[in-house]
Every structure is written in structure tokens, then in C-alpha cells.
Design a protein around this nucleic acid. Sequence first.
DNA 1: CGGTATCCCGTGTGATACTG
DNA 2: CAGTATCACACGGGATACCG
Lengths: 152, 152
Amino acid sequence: MEKLEFKDLDRTFCPVSKAMREIGDRWTLLILRECFWGFKRFDDFQVNLKISKSVLTTKLNHMISLDLLEKQSYKEEGKRTRYEYTFTQKGKDLTKIMLSFLDWGNKYLVNEGEITLKAIDKISKKEVAIDILDDSGKRLKYSALEMKIVRK
Amino acid sequence: MEKLEFKDLDRTFCPVSKAMREIGDRWTLLILRECFWGFKRFDDFQVNLKISKSVLTTKLNHMISLDLLEKQSYKEEGKRTRYEYTFTQKGKDLTKIMLSFLDWGNKYLVNEGEITLKAIDKISKKEVAIDILDDSGKRLKYSALEMKIVRK
DNA sequence: CGGTATCCCGTGTGATACTG
DNA sequence: CAGTATCACACGGGATACCG
């Protein structure tokens, strides 16, 4: 079997391409960010994100079809039925992507003195980091990395 | 000083929003991926990504203006002057975002038996992971996280 | 509150042709 | 090879009105 070179490959095989096609739009990650903060209702998304209702409808339905979100109805005593959106495991697993964005954004796009967001450990209240680890758990630099083409 | 609540905040303050505005388009991350693989020339990008030349020109110039890329000229003996694009530190620091996409894409968007890409340690040739760490270097679950509004 | 149905518009993108 | 210029268009997104 001959060795596959990057140049020969249709880039659509790359998981980064695939992920971009699925969540690489203006709203998906921001909706999931709102979920991560605990918001669940249509109206919260709409007000917080200042997204138009028609687009939000489309996005939510699309994200449900991609298994990023689940829609559930619930009913409080004496109130009418409501709906809430919560993320699935697949959606929740986008947290690392969100935190990477957060990290990079904080480093390069936030000025000194400006208000921003950090992710902290609930217990220690200290900042968390996101990093690249080898199989023994040691942190790696980018320069220590290479890409390999494999079959899953 | 009163406590700031998420609901009160214009979402544009969020570094995730800011990052999305800067790199949340169809091409930027894919161009940086090609850089990460070692490609540097206009034509490589164009052929590999199947992007139209006019769009590529616009993107590259935009990315230079955002300080994600640098353009340099170089000259080999007896050949004419060529140009190459390499990423800046700011661009290089997007690697974690790329690896997060790679990780998530591999988990959810690649079927068994399909060709895909993994990031490995150059030395040990073993797969690397990307993870969330507390300040002592211990891995954290999402459920151990919370967000905090701070000033940089 | 939680949507759907229309209509409209900007812009991101591709195709093609041209240049040094 | 490394672009620029021009045109044309689809589609994502916003605004508005309407509905259960």
C-alpha cells in the first residue's frame, strides 16, 4: 500500500473540514455557548443573541437534526407547557472548542482593562487551561506535533 | 460594585463572539490548517482547498491585516522571486482550536474504517489529546467548570 | 411565549478573463 | 506562478406580520 500524501487527498476527508461544515457558521457555537451558561429557552436565545426569530427557528431545528441539541417539553404547576433546549453529549463535547476560542480570544482580542470571561474551576475558583497532552499527560508544544493519516 | 449577570451583558463582550467574528468564516481555519501542514504558497492553497483565486486573495490579505499571517518574498538561486505565507504567533496559537475541531470531528463525524487525520507526538508517534486542566495540571470535566466575568 | 411564513437584501463565493 | 478585475448569483440572515 502506497503512502498517502496530503497533496493527494481531497480535503473533505479531514475532520476539521467536516467539523467546519457542521458547526462553522455564525450562530451554532454561540447558541451552544448560551446552553453552556444554562439558558434553555427560545426566548432567552433570541434576546441574548439578538438573532432573528426565523433564523433561530431554522438553526435550532438544524442543530436538533445534527444531534447537537434536544428539545423537551416541560410543565410547571398551573402553567402551560413550555419547551426547553438542552445539548446532547455531542453538543456538550463542543465545550473544548468553545474553551479554545475563549482562550485565544482572551489572549488576542481583549484589551487590558476590558470586561471578559474566564473559565474557572468551580471548587478552587482558579483559572483553567486547555492544553495539548501526550499519552503520559505531559504538555506538548505545537512543534512537537505531526499529523498522521490513519483509518478510524 | 454590583455583580454583573450574563443576562445584562451585550454578548459582543464575550471572547468567543469576538473570535467568531475574526476567524468564524468558511476559509480562515482551513487556510491555517494548510499552513500547519507546511504549505506556504498561493497555488498550494488554491489547489488544495479548491478555493477560487479571487476569494483566496481577499482572505490572505485580510488574514495578514489581522496579523494571522505574514507574507515574505524569497528567491532561490537562478529562479525568480517567490512569495510565501507563514503564520504569525497569533495564527500559530489557533492550533489548539484546530486540534479541538480535529478531536471532535474524529469522534463524531468520521465513520469506522474511513480515512482520517490524527495529531501525534513526533517522538513517541503516539496520539495526543487536548484537555482541560486545573492549575495543578489535573484534567477536569466540563461539570467542574464555571464562567466568571472579570477584567483583563 | 414560542414559534412559522414571507419577503427582501447584502455579501461571500465562484467563474472567467486578464496581467506581470 | 501569483495574483487582480469583473460579473453574476445563491444563500444566510434580518424585518415584519401572523398564529396557537
